[in-house]
Design a protein around this nucleic acid. Sequence first.
DNA 1: TTGAAAGCGCTAACAA
DNA 2: TTGTTAGCGCTTTCAA
Lengths: 369, 369
Amino acid sequence: MNNPPPRRRDVTVADVAREARVAKATAARALGDYGAVSDAVRDRVQAAAEALGYRPNELARSMNTGKSNTIGVIVGDIENPYFGLATRGISDAAKEQGFDVILVNTSEDVDAEMDAVRVLLDKRVDGLIVAPASSGKTDHLRAVYETGRPLVLLDRRIEGLDVDVVEADMASVAYQATRHLTDAGHRRIAFISTLDVEGGEFHEGIDLRVSSVADRLEGVLRAQRDAGLPDPSALVRFDANGAAGIKRIVRELMALSDPPTAIIASDSLIALSVLGTVRELGLSVPGDLSFIMFDDFEWTTLTSPPLTVISQPIYEMGAAAARRLIGRVQGRQLPDAMTKFTATLVQRGSVGRPRAGVLAGPMDPLSAI
Amino acid sequence: MNNPPPRRRDVTVADVAREARVAKATAARALGDYGAVSDAVRDRVQAAAEALGYRPNELARSMNTGKSNTIGVIVGDIENPYFGLATRGISDAAKEQGFDVILVNTSEDVDAEMDAVRVLLDKRVDGLIVAPASSGKTDHLRAVYETGRPLVLLDRRIEGLDVDVVEADMASVAYQATRHLTDAGHRRIAFISTLDVEGGEFHEGIDLRVSSVADRLEGVLRAQRDAGLPDPSALVRFDANGAAGIKRIVRELMALSDPPTAIIASDSLIALSVLGTVRELGLSVPGDLSFIMFDDFEWTTLTSPPLTVISQPIYEMGAAAARRLIGRVQGRQLPDAMTKFTATLVQRGSVGRPRAGVLAGPMDPLSAI
DNA sequence: TTGAAAGCGCTAACAA
DNA sequence: TTGTTAGCGCTTTCAA
């Protein structure tokens, strides 16, 4: 293409008013569908608008109504299917209520998140849905709260920040999943998460700051303690970032003198890298290693074996977040209910009994064989 | 949460000016970083702004600059990883140039796409990136063109619409992929796409309207003709929508007296359903059926066998689209180069020779055995 | 029901 | 360098 057409001046209410031979205010009323206008005039104005190709300027409109009919969404990584699906839910629900969505991707970077909040606030969005990258720094979110614009947190709550949160019950499903593993005889269960944690190492009592991860871990550890396993936190690994980092972690884990017989991956991106590494290592699932991952995407049914996963109603959670936010925007009084969703364990084929050899452990009388 | 704080009145330049004891325009200059302001005054104004917690109103700013520093992106389905990745590329490139992104999802519905265009135009975005759902109706896109706002088409070009298009060279890679299949001995190759086509059936000379699909198909058919295969279009299937629809198509295909020995899936969503059906049917890949899909996502390395795919630089294409659009927005004269990307065939394990039994065909002297 | 006029918060001429 | 004065395109008083 070579000759971009000149940018034409937009047709305004004034133009339409002139064409329809009415006052500007009258035309605006007819066009904006507010106030009182006689049918005759309305028709005339609309005809004029049509003829001129009039389109309202939503910016101007927002400026004096103070509402933009737009919600801002801040996600860590739109490439992550979790957020893709959640965003879809948000968009659909927003559209249903006549709201638009501005999406900002932060690449899971807190500074970018702070920028994003500022930008969206400056654009005067009516409210914000945020899946906070790290809940270390949260001043920017508290700031949102203080502007009085509604804020809904997706997937992660933040200690001491009294806003709506839409999340799934991670602790209990994590417990259930881990229990499934211990019931099968597993005694060494690893848990891998992207969360970067102070000092890089996990220890009891550490403040994990991202509630969804903390909850998952809590369930995982509790189930192991309930099964009488000593020191369940020894195989917890954080800071699993990027394919290379995850690969390294898995290799280290499997090189242990007492390697895990099962791995729980905290999200689908980790799972992909874990499985890739497992394949490189020539290990078989579930023969050599049992595997459970958080989130249920269609490809997990196509691996051999299909994967045992934890399924969250991600789309619905996104939609719920949007509906709740818009409710707040419209000043509705909302009950706190329905904000916690249930996740379920979907058993497919990636969990088996640990091999006899590796079953060996302090509690196993056959260990000497 | 129970007591949403009252929505505070925003602090404006006027407030800051008063606090700093300067004229409104002076404060605005200092704050907006334009015009000339003495250092002393600038400091005073900024201090006042800081103290008051001033934040610019970008809407007001956009209103008289006529620029919103925002680009609109319209995609069919953000849940589709293709668009997730492309959107990520768009976002990153846009952010780099100081632009924000408004994303609208159309659920691959043309009416929704028309709405989306209208909404974004009304919001006065500076430009639009669209991956058009169906190029049947394109008036709304021509309308964008006529407002003089730049428009970049992603993945699909539209006949007779003279705008920038960012796409990959689909015809040649499709040819190459199909050639790979015919070289392996395949004579019955099916091609499955979501595209809905008039009449529901494909026939030679039909106007496919979505260029990326038309190109793929062109390559697929040409390779077969070059290999001397008669009637290569007999196994072309369109309208593959939703898991159920795709499943039905695959079942019908495999129930043919002369079923295909290879399937090419036009995108990853189709691939997922095709493979699910193949698994249900108890068929093995590539033993019973060879398989190639468009787009390369990490999970395709984890299936057994790993899948042979066609890889496009999706992220880069998104980024390129954004850069090109922003270039146009800024009125730069741009060459038409660099707008066509190269896709490559990644050979993994899902293509093999057709079984001897099914190899039988009119050109095969062994068919009687 | 209609019109005139005053803003919304900012930028942009134009003077001083 | 600073201030004054108009707008941007719309909504919203307030009168008529």
